[in-house]
Design a binder for these strands. Structure first.
Lengths: 245, 245
DNA sequence: GCGGTCTGATTGTCCGGACATACACATTGA
DNA sequence: TCAATGTGTATGTCCGGACAATCAGACCGC
């Protein structure tokens, strides 16, 4: 029983996308077991009434995701288990929500300030020009988890304090029509300064996890620069790195 | 002067790859300035004597890398500066070498042990079955930088202590014909236990950066599981995350 | 002046075909 | 027995064409 696949030619969603989604779903639910061959592309195309390039395009996206492996002369097979879907550019808010933690946010600062040299360099704006500054305390279960300090270029969208407390920065950006593309991150650790310690209900000198991040949209524009500190007993970074071929 | 591009049809390297490399080089050296249009695909194909699908394939790889942006009805333009090339799955050894630090490695342990439950789960082998265990101390400028404890499934390749001291684990894997695909990482921080502190020439309770990683090859097989601790004053993680569309 | 509409340009999707290349396996030869 | 050779099969590369969807800007009517 060679797996039921169908495409809807009247749908506006591209055929290759329909196919790749169905294949991904089949893998996800175990209908395609790890190691099993997918059947050759020509036959698959014929069965679906598609052309080979279209089938190849569908397969390629899953290969990029690491769900399939192609081997010349052998065929395309489902990857040998393990590898889960690569994590997206993580949003602390989404992470917490996914973990069922019901995050709460307290906006400490939401204002416009002149850009320091560091911020100006990160956002690629003139030093001293206006940038938004947002400082937040993120909590879960009533306990502080992280201190987030972000800078954004002006005119991107309006930063409403109420919205900032209700959701995450990334969601607001996406809602404003910004397509996030990538982020450059730096993760380190250091002992908490007295001021930091108090904010996060830790002792001075306690280990803190630090993250600096610049996020870019799909035009290569820097849309956010942030310096974050996390309580390592409450949070750690989980993500998946892909090797670029 | 619309940029000099040429492909060599007698070369065994694929045409789309030749083209994408030339375009990338042109962007890298500034011959294609950020924001500039690339010229439409049909005309470009005609100028190079290639077909449009081939040109598209070349462009697509650069779009995936974040160097180009396509906009329907407008054209393809070079991304608006900033975004550098995404970092590869980082190898501490390569990182250090790239930074001109001339890393040194001291192999503390190189043996075969029965897999603990945690290791067995990570490597997807039976609990209690044989796995390699490698423990290393990595130093730069005579100072310890990180303590690396790795587990590898048996029979992958032979772990020579001498080679382990001369280069990094990833390089050995690649040399053994293993194609790395992705890695799942978890980065956190904690205070150093007395034993750890002594190993890394830190004080007990000093902040340490910790990383756990499972690396997969292109068939989805787990090829390495490691628990590392770093001195945060000497090292931090830098990488680029891509948003999966 | 202002807003909607038409038009041209460009990428997005899809097709059908052709040949090259690499791998697994069976066959053959020493 | 073992290595070299052949063979089939699958993916890899490339072509030429067709039509659709979308964007920017010019055009037109109010």
């Amino acid at each position: 029983m060679p797996l039921e696949l169908r495409v809807d030619r009247s749908s506006p969603v591209p055929l290759y996308f329909q196919l790749s989604q169905q294949l991904e779903a089949a893998i996800e639910r175990g209908a395609l077991t790890p190691g099993s061959l997918l059947g050759n592309e020509i036959e698959l195309a014929g069965r679906l009434g598609l052309s080979r390039p279209t089938v190849r395009q569908a397969i390629q996206t899953l290969v990029d995701k690491g769900l399939l492996v192609r081997r010349r002369g052998v065929g395309t097979q489902v990857v040998h288990s393990q590898v889960k879907r690569p994590l997206e550019l993580s949003s602390l808010y989404d992470d917490l929500e996914a973990a069922g933690q019901r995050p709460a946010t307290q906006v400490l600062v939401n204002t416009v300030v002149p850009a320091s040299a560091e911020v100006a360099a990160a956002l690629n704006v003139a030093e001293g020009s206006d940038v938004h500054r947002v400082e937040r305390l993120r909590m879960a279960h009533g306990e502080p988890m992280a201190h987030l300090c972000n800078y954004l270029p002006p005119g991107l969208f309006d930063l409403d304090t109420g919205q900032l407390e209700a959701t995450g920065l990334y969601r607001l950006m996406r809602a404003a029509g910004i397509t996030l593309h990538s982020a450059r991150q730096s993760i380190g650790a250091r002992g908490a300064a007295p001021e930091e310690a108090e904010r996060l209900a830790e002792q001075a000198g306690a280990p803190l996890l630090t993250m600096q991040r610049t996020t870019f949209d799909d035009t290569g524009r820097a849309v956010e620069f942030g310096t974050h500190t996390y309580r390592p007993t409450r949070y750690s970074f989980e993500f998946q790195l892909l090797v670029r071929p």
